[in-house]
Amino acid sequence: MNRLRSRGTERLLLAGGLLALALSMPPLPWPRASFDYLAVFDITQSMGVADYRLHDKPLSRLAFARRALATALTELPCGSKVGLAAFTGYRSLTLLAPVDVCDHYGDLLSTLEQVDDRMRWAEASEVAKGLYWALRAARDVGGEPQLLFFSDGHESPPLQGTVPALFGDIRQGEIRGMVIGTGGDVPRPIPKQDTPGRFNGFWHADEVVQNADAAPHDEHLSALRENHLQALAARTGLDYLRLESVAGLSRAMRSGTRARRREVPTDFSWVALGLALALLCAAPLRTLIAGRSTAAPGQ
């Protein structure tokens, strides 16, 4: 009897000790997977082609890419950081250095909403150079994010020959990330904007620079130029992903190979609490079981 009692007292003491520990325990640094990205959006005119559909409504390439990223942001674990940049002309311009997706989701979203035609500071679309500038941006923005480069691969003026050489200051594979092919397979007319944000019909064949050697003069139409983007990805050492669904992007962004282990202050008081709970439940559980087994044969 006394032994039973003193065991109970021991358990209570231990439970009390664990509760005190839970009360005084500071959050401990613990490695957790997180994902850091610099997302670069092509904001040239061909990205205005509405060859995506969402909820049965046509959506432009740029709008769909933004929507996909906005959704993917909600599925990244806290501690992940995302920054934003835009590409037009021949270069990418960093807009927002990476910030925490949980702490600043609202701000990230409203900045993302603003990445559109109205930002366009130049009218050309030299995708290869834009991508190389994006690599530089990912390298220099701080925090070593991976790159997400959303583009349809439509070069304007058209490229003569193959993919241009990488800039001298970037090594192939130095920056990791994905080139994300945005657009459909069917060439479609490009909405024309006289001033950014104001649409006025479509571009005609005689209004754009056509490819000198190629027979069909169809540079005024735009489809996803997947071969070109894949060649660019190979040249830069990035992976290629075709943007087909919101979920697909989110999955690719959370792939284990892209994770970065980062020590996040983590609350472990639940371990102490759980043990205390087990100890507190042990005594009544024991009597319940003991009561059953002694009562049963007596009846």
Partner: peptide
């Protein structure tokens, strides 16, 4: 933090 991230971005390149 977000404002600072915007200001920082202005210095990239």
């Amino acid at each position: 933090e977000v404002v600072q991230a915007g200001i920082t971005a202005g210095g990239v390149h």
